[in-house]
Design a protein around this nucleic acid. Structure first.
Lengths: 230, 230
DNA sequence: TTCTTACATTGACATTTATCAATTTTATTT
DNA sequence: AAATAAAATTGATAAATGTCAATGTAAGAA
């Protein structure tokens, strides 16, 4: 399970943003907290709308994506358990720059905007932690843009399989990924058919196998090699 | 000069990060400030090294980029006057995730790490402003990844010319860009020869003209159309 | 289960983009 | 200005990727 692929370069939240706050701060944060459930495929928030609060994923997976004006999406991140959604738009005082949709059934905690902003403005710990996290995200995005700008579809496919393997391995079987081909293609930044052909190549090279839409990672090191990461 | 291209989606610093501080805060920030000069082509800091402080561009242009392990760079941003460099790595407590090199001769103000961190930790205004700015940058990067993932070389070339036109228009002639083809290709995320061919197409379509390496924007609206932005 | 629908896969082909090797142009040095 | 070096451009071609249409397969509904 260990290998030399730098997962931290692909993860937004390495630490729990809201942990370690004082009881009073926690109380203020959670005073109006709501637990929400989203079925797979349901949109949580939509690009271009006004943010109402932040969300913490309690269980399930959420895809974050932006839409082009010509009908294709780009999925730039999959959020797993204990990751947060929607804080950027609130802090930047702008509309949501992206959309979020449940990839699997989700349980999510919702904290209204004002409760969040209130604690941010009063908690030194929280604002420092947000600064640290947002600055870390800068590096994650840099890495993402470099990969999109300079790596081939084959390399990007391998990279995304490695990321997903790690994302899905937390609570489930270590080596299986369930994602539809359209979404995976949208992460890689390619056409669905090109993605399917790349998976076929990887199958022939014994790097993966599939059963239905489920992808099994068979050779982690082989995928790392295919990703051209050093 | 006005058109409907959304430049703010491409700009990291929309406001001056350090303006409006109290005199005491300013004094503490600038206590050990140094003014540095970098000749075009000189590296200011290097990916993977430890950050020593932050930089403010007083004049000139700086390119920010990351390197792949196979020898190509990706230039993800050009910094102009009054923009800041290097604060991400300091706030994230990580190594520089990117490199910075003077694109034109530059004058730069350097503020040592500890002076910056000191004021950040004590100034509510500054930390709030940083939070706002870093969150805005999230949207800028989202836009960048979407464009790299989903737009063609032609579209990306048009987009980058529009960005550069705006970047270079602040103090200089409104419509000319001076950048070498390798760097422009690196921004677009394509090969130098492909970039040159795209410029040739744009010349034939009267969207631009060139004289030596200088590119003149002849038809801003035509470029917006070519960028496929809506 | 059977039907129905959505999704995954394949094939054929077009288009886009990259690569390598000249050649021409521009910038720099003497 | 002439010589030299660096950068830009072009041509020929290969390789990668996208598109459209068809077919196969799996999952959910009746």
């Amino acid at each position: 399970m260990n290998n030399n692929f730098p997962y931290s370069k692909y993860n937004f939240n390495n630490q729990d943003l809201l942990s370690g706050l004082t009881t009073a701060e926690c109380d203020r944060l959670t005073a109006n907290k709501e637990i929400l459930n989203f079925k797979a495929g349901t949109q949580i928030f939509k690009e271009g709308t006004e943010p109402k609060g932040i969300y913490r994923v309690l269980s399930g997976k959420v895809k974050k994506y932006t839409a082009t004006n010509f009908g294709t999406d780009h999925i730039f991140y999959i959020c797993g358990e204990n990751e947060y959604l929607g804080y950027h738009a609130i802090l930047s005082e702008e509309e949501y720059p992206d959309s979020a949709t449940a990839l699997l059934d989700c349980e999510v905690a919702f904290i209204p905007k004002n409760d969040f902003l209130n604690v941010v403005s009063k908690s030194h710990l929280l604002s420092q932690r947000l600064l640290k996290n947002l600055s870390h995200e800068f590096g994650v995005f840099l890495n993402a843009t470099k990969i999109l700008a300079r790596y081939t579809v084959r390399e990007r496919t391998a990279i995304n399989l490695l990321i997903l393997q790690r994302k899905f391995s937390v609570k489930e079987s270590l080596k299986e990924i369930e994602i539809n081909r359209e979404d995976l293609a949208s992460m890689v930044g390619t056409a669905k058919e090109s993605l399917v052909r790349m998976l076929k190549d990887f199958k022939e090279e014994k790097l993966i196998s599939t059963k239905g839409r489920i992808i099994f990672i068979e050779d982690l090191e082989g995928l790392v090699k295919a990703s051209n990461y050093k």
